[in-house]
Amino acid sequence: MKRLMNPGLWITLLIVVALGLWPTITRNAATRELVFTILLAIGFASSLNILLGYTGYVSFGHVVFYGLGGYIGMYLFKQYNSPLWIAVPAGGLAAGLLAFILGKSILHLRGGYFALVTIGVNEAMRAFINTLKPFGGPTGIELDFSVYKPYGGAANALWLVYYTAFGLALLFIIISFMIKTSKFGLGLLSIREDEDAAEVMGVIAPNLKTWAFVLSAILPGMLGVLFFFKNGNVEPGDAFRLGFSIENLVMIMLGGQGTVLGPVLGAIVYQRLRGLLLVSPLFKNIQLSVSGVLLLVIVLFIPVGAVGWLRNRFPRLRRVLP
């Protein structure tokens, strides 16, 4: 695997490893919660980046995969007492399947229409699950405290969830890198640049796009299981919150879409900033507005994001920062 000997990949992994091990060293639950949120964002944003950054399709309702995964996992925990190692892949599988079906039906839509239909899919799913009795309708699913027993109690279970998220984030960063540097990835990039021209060159865009969509949905599905397992309950409103998708789009923009490092940096910076704003008495109430202004500034003035800006500024970095 000579391809993996890329400094950009290793920098990215190193950052995430350092971040992930931080709570292990401090053994502090509050730090762990903070880093868990960041890891979740890193995983989600890196996955979404496969579709957004590599393929050029804006999935606004991407949270639908997170929510669906969460619900599938919670259902398995509740009804079948299913262990984590079954529920997590099941959530990923469900998300992947949904993405496959959607990919076959909506990926022919381009630009704004695709973004719109993904919003519609998320809202339809939220409304549907709201009516679905087995999933608890509007009240959702709540776990008994006893589900954490097999893991040696809630405290241990939380650490287990944490390390699983950590491992998955690392794994998917590597997967994201391997996709970007593969033939498949080149096909995706060519679709992003000019889909019609790519098809003329023999790129089977419908298939590639579908697989990109599936790959970008699996990890969010698994992360949904982890988050709601930790949370102890899931409701339609929490599971399918459109703002969650959009926050992740912002992180990707911030760090640099289409790069491996970008979403990771973006997730860290965005979550830290949000945390700081939330505790600052001055900004607490208008935290959202400050984030909004920040987003606007990025969109208007540095739309390629931090890593993209570096790559443009110093072309040599193109090789180093994939």
């Binding site: 957004l52 050029g56 804006v58 606004f60 630009g111 704004g112 973004a115 959009i246 789009l249 912002v250 923009m253 879409q257 109430n285 208008i286 935290q287 959202l288 507005s289 400050v290 984030s291 909004g292 202004v293 987003l295 606007l296 969109v299 208007l300 739309p303």
Partner: peptide, 30 residues
Amino acid sequence: AIQRVLGASHLSTLLATYSVNMIIIGIGTA
């Protein structure tokens, strides 16, 4: 918020308008 991103990608216009959304909601909620 809009003029500068008009010719840019759909993501840019979507996020530009969304940032206006965030600003209004943030101040409005406060």
